[in-house]
Nucleic acid binder design. Structure first.
Lengths: 217, 217, 217, 217
DNA sequence: AATGAATGAGCCTTCATTCAT
DNA sequence: GATGAATGAAGGCTCATTCAT
């Protein structure tokens, strides 16, 4: 039916646009470029989505839906020790962020949004990022002593995600510094283990020595 | 002298462009916009710098020169314990990155370059970033046991810088997650202490449990 | 049909551009000027032709197609004496070059290309000029004794075309020297007859006295 | 003196501009380009000559002055037969136009003026071209029967100059047609002899068969 | 007298969008 | 419903010229 054909074009646009936006950014990706790649008319984007900006939002939304297909976030398992849950979750996350056998353009797109937000960021935060952030927050809280102040939980959580995001956000720089580890399966395992061990030690030290007092040296 | 007059416009251009580039990015900042802000003709940029791209590189270079004026990187002090040196350096770096009383656009500009590199990144890495990265690498190496493999040093160094950069790279997201700490003097002190303690614990744990062996759980 | 509409603007552009390019030259004719004359937006040229240069090439190609409409090059007639064929061809050529009731801008455009070539010249030579040049070469060869060296044929051919082209290439000068004949039908007839007689005598003398030996005086 | 220095710059500008104007044309030769080649400031042209247009006229005038230095037009010799005088003059002219060991940019400049006149053409015609044209006219008149009509003289003169100018005006085309003779000394001699013989036969035929009557076929 | 700085008008091109069909 | 045509605004850049010294 024509509806099917229409959907076909719509779908093709959504599919080809992601990698292009990820590679060149919103502003530097032309609507013509996208439509050529999708094999359709330049008017198609505005016809189907109203504007370039709205189209971009749709690309992000669609990307989120297919983001973790085949690689879902591990659900909390009753009775699992916090340390193990933390490690498991971290391995999963770093894998989904950095494994080169998965389409990384979604992550790159998110990275771009973080540095140069568009109106699409709000939706992205609520739908894609907050669930993960709160899940990690919960795990970190379990690792800290009961009653640890909220600010402490936040700082530890941020310390964890910073260690991971740096490989997305500063990749071109780390590469030039020859400080970018391999993202092969073995390299990724080493990286995950390092990050887990480093973070667990950091979190536990925080339990012992509250930051209000200067840490003993 | 005529040199003074010449420098006047040139200098004004360099000064007004930084914040604008930082706010909107290279592509989304028009040279018209810049020249209006600098109170000169649109041809002035091309006259003084040859092209928009070359001008941008000049802005970055000039920014680097005036970057740490009045807030220089602490020099290594003979006999200072590694832990103290690390803490001192980290407090300095986070201050220069996050203190709101200093012009933050330089850091934002660097952040943009990391995520969306232009030809100017190479120079920036060599002149601005590498010296700092290698200084930090040296301190981390002192904190690790003698003979620690290079890859270990790198991973620990990256873990440290990731914890700091996250507040620049993911600021809009953290803000929406209500996970952005205050950058007031007090907040900054707390943040620095947390990061220092967290990192030191992480580094020392790494000494104990080499990552080749899977960490005990 | 939409094709008709499409052709309308495209066609109008091609039509108005010829005279303008002929009058001012490629560089001194702005696409704004052309588009105003064609009653369309300045972006139309780039939309339809990609660039100013490509548009110019299209103008030349289109001009060539419509060049000899209603005034075709006389076909070789079997059994016609060489002298008559030469005269017939020359009358035709001079008419198509110089008759003021025909659009002369094409010839002017060619003249400009000869003196100040653009990348469009190659195509023009192959498509418009070579066929005529080789036709003339063939006639001249018939007028010369069998076995005349190729260089002799060339020199004679060049002598013929030079006598004609001078009225296009040096027109402004001849005018100032009061040496420009009338291009009225009568004047054109006289000019053609002169050129034919002059050339035939020249060619036949060449047959008698090969140029290696100095001509008797 | 400073006047000497000034004159030095003035002179250098006049010297470097000729070849540049000849190669790229008036419009496509930038004032900056010229001043870089002359090693002076971009304001120098306007300072010394008032405007680009006036400077161009000055270049042409200066060129004319030094045009035939070392290669003067042969003066009329009493008692020399017309045929010989014609040949001598033609050899001289073609040499000055085509000999590659002489600076040809002046001729190229004239060629450009003919096709695309600027206000400087009038002066050039009067000072450089008319003397030569009238000299040739005189010789041709001697070759024709006494009382030949002025129009006849003109046509024959034009036929001669056309045969020569074609090698300047249509050079890029003849080259592509592989119809451009060599301008080596030997090639130039052959070319001159051909042109002289061809022209003399043409002129003499014109004496016999007046063009008012249609040529018999 | 002579120059480096600065100008404003203009260039061609690109872009997301809208129009007519 | 969907498209090729067409648009107007804006982009960076070049240019001959003028200004201030």
């Amino acid at each position: 039916m024509s509806a099917t054909v229409a959907d076909a074009t719509r779908q093709r646009l959504l599919e080809v646009a992601g990698p292009l936006f990820a590679e060149h950014g919103f502003r530097d990706t032309g609507i013509k470029q996208i439509c050529v790649a999708a094999g359709c008319n330049v008017a198609a984007v505005n016809y189907h989505f109203g504007s370039k900006q709205a189209f971009y939002a749709a690309v992000l939304a669609a990307a989120h839906q297919s983001a973790f297909v085949g690689h879902p976030m591990p659900a909390p398992t009753k009775g699992m020790p916090a340390v193990e849950e933390f490690t498991q979750w971290l391995v999963w996350w770093m894998g989904s962020m950095l494994r080169p056998d998965r389409p990384v353009w979604l992550q790159t797109l998110m990275t771009r949004e973080m540095v140069d937000p568009t109106p699409a960021l709000d939706t992205m935060v609520e739908r894609s990022i907050r669930p993960m952030y709160e899940r990690l927050t919960g795990i970190v809280r379990r690792l800290l002593p009961k009653g640890a102040p909220r600010s402490r939980v936040r700082l530890c959580t941020n310390s964890v995600i910073g260690q991971v995001l740096v490989y997305k956000h500063a990749e071109p720089v780390l590469q030039r510094l020859h400080a970018l580890p391999s993202f092969s399966p073995a390299g990724l395992r080493e990286l995950s283990e390092h990050t887990a061990a480093f973070s667990l030690a950091g979190i536990q030290s925080a339990s012992a020595a509250p930051p209000r007092r200067r840490a003993a040296r």
